[in-house]
Every structure is written in structure tokens, then in C-alpha cells.
């Protein structure tokens, strides 16, 4: 199904670099793709966290996770809205056209794994948005400046739960370790710089994840030390989400998320 809005590729915009930047008013396919990457990260993780609704270990935790989910879906609404029609992009796009990283589509597992995923993602997103708030792109600058406060809270909450589970009972520490082991192989993808991202970094639109890779590692190391957990050994990285190569999990998530608007396209609240 052709579900993406048509894109006119501007002449001379196939390479990377400042001189290839489209003129004002011309379509900018690289920027479009970057908005999808950022927007899909938030959308898919928001949907995942929403799955906890009514199932969290305590009523208060249920609310915490729902709040994180709503923050993320709010970000996705803005980011996908800047790329096109946010609802069409969220609900009428097929799995191969999603550009989120593989980490956010991973199943919730138990609460330990959900918190491990949140720690790895929110720490990365926080460092990224701090830098994006200085982007040359006015929209990205403004959305990042607003979202960075939400994400700072997500990061702190995930860090606190990691410490409590890691430095808790034998069982909670074991579950936290297993959660981290599951998620760890998806870290390298967060720092992958492909040709498209490289061009956007050159133009000052995107933030270079390489500029905070060390800070990311040491921030995680500090939380894990507090949690009395060892930093997991690096595993064979799994890449591909940014090119639409997803795990089977994303298809199941989308089937659930997109069912209603696809089956009843005229449905209204």
C-alpha cells in the first residue's frame, strides 16, 4: 500500500553537505526522514508504554507510565505534524515505512525490562534534545527546547527505578539485569550516523550523536554503579530500524495501534 505522501526529490539534493540544502520552499526529503525518525521513536515508545495502562505493579506506577506515554505521543504529534499529516503518518503507514530505532519497539517484558529500555532511550533522547535545542532548524529548536524538560523527567524516573530494582531484592536485581541484557544490543543503533544523518549534521539541522557517545556511556555507568549492577558486556549490534528493517514486534504493535482508523476510516471521537 502506497501510504507515504508523495515526495518530490529536489534537483541536486542527492548528495550531502551545506551546498545541497534545498532552497526555501522546496521539499527537503532528508529533513522529512529525520522528522520521521524522531517522531516514530516517540510514537512507538509512547504506544508501548500505553500497553502498561491498567497492568502496572501499582496504581501510582500506572499513572507514571501513562504520563510518560502521553509526553511521548505529544512529541510525536508535533514531529509528525511537521513532516505531514500526523494522523495519516501514524495510522496509515506500513511497517517498512517506519523509521524508529529498534530499541523502542521492543516488547515491554516485565517492569524491569521496561525500565531498562526507558533508561537507555531517555538518557539518549535527553542528550540528543539538549543539542537539538541549538539546531539551525527553528522548528526542531523549539520542539526540542520544550520536550527536553519532559525527557529529563523520564530519564530521572527511569534512573531511580533502575537503582531501586538493581539495589533491591535478589529477584528485582536479577530482573533488572535481564532487562538490561535484552536491551543492550540496541544501543549502537542510537549512535549510527548514516549518509542521510551525516548530511543533516553538516547543515546544522540534526545533532551528531557521536558528540555525546562518551557522556552517554558514563551517565549509564553512573546509574548502574548506584544500582550495584555491572555494565553489561557489549553484544553484537542490531541495526536497521532507520531504514525500515524492523523486528516482528513492530508489526504486531502497529496492527493493534492502527486497527481502528484503518477499519473505520471515517470514525470520529
Amino acid at each position: 500500500m502506497a501510504s507515504l505522501p508523495p515526495i518530490d526529490v529536489p534537483k541536486g539534493a542527492t548528495g550531502a553537505g551545506a551546498f545541497d540544502a534545498p532552497a526555501a520552499g522546496e521539499p527537503d526529503p532528508a529533513r522529512f526522514d529525520y522528522l520521521l525518525r524522531l517522531g516514530d521513536d516517540s510514537l512507538i515508545l509512547g504506544q508501548r508504554l500505553g500497553e502498561w495502562c491498567g497492568h502496572a505493579p501499582a496504581l501510582e506506577v500506572d499513572l507514571s507510565l501513562a504520563n510518560l506515554a502521553l509526553d511521548l505521543i505529544g512529541q510525536a504529534t508535533h514531529l509528525l505534524g511537521a513532516a505531514g499529516d500526523a494522523d495519516r503518518l501514524a495510522f496509515h503507514r506500513d511497517v517498512l515505512d517506519f523509521r524508529n530505532c529498534l530499541l523502542v519497539e521492543q516488547p515491554n517484558g516485565d517492569f524491569g525490562r521496561t525500565m531498562a529500555r526507558q533508561l537507555l532511550f531517555s538518557t539518549w533522547q535527553h542528550l540528543l534534545y539538549q543539542r537539538l535545542s541549538e539546531s539551525t532548524d527553528q522548528f526542531l529548536r523549539e520542539i526540542a527546547a520544550k520536550a527536553v524538560k519532559e525527557v529529563a523527567y523520564h530519564r530521572e524516573l527511569a534512573s531511580e527505578w533502575t537503582v531501586r530494582l538493581g539495589d533491591g531484592t535478589e529477584e528485582s536485581a536479577q530482573r533488572m539485569r535481564e532487562g538490561l541484557d535484552w536491551c543492550w544490543r540496541f544501543i549502537p543503533e542510537l549512535f549510527e550516523v548514516d549518509e542521510l544523518l551525516d548530511g543533516l549534521i553538516t547543515r546544522g539541522i540534526a545533532a551528531d550523536p557521536g558528540s555525546f557517545a562518551d557522556e552517554y556511556r558514563s551517565a549509564l555507568g553512573a546509574v548502574l554503579a548506584d544500582a550495584k549492577l555491572e555494565t553489561p558486556a557489549d553484544q553484537r549490534p542490531i541495526l536497521g530500524g532507520r531504514r525500515g528493517h524492523h523486528s516482528e514486534h513492530l508489526g504486531h504493535l502497529l496492527a493493534q495501534m492502527q486497527f481502528l482508523p484503518r477499519t473505520y476510516p471515517d470514525a470520529k471521537w
Binding site: A58, L59, E60, L63, S64, N67, L157, E160
Partner: peptide, 20 residues
């Protein structure tokens, strides 16, 4: 009121429950 295992998480739960 909220349930929480300790003071810091009680603040988080209070934030997420009562200042949304």
C-alpha cells in the same frame, strides 16, 4: 495520598498523580 517505597519515589508518584 500515594503509596511509595520511599520518600523520593513518593514525590515522583505525587507529581504524577496530583500535578498532571
Amino acid at each position: 495520598s500515594v503509596h511509595a517505597p520511599d520518600a523520593q519515589l513518593a514525590l515522583r508518584h505525587a507529581r504524577d498523580t496530583y500535578t498532571r
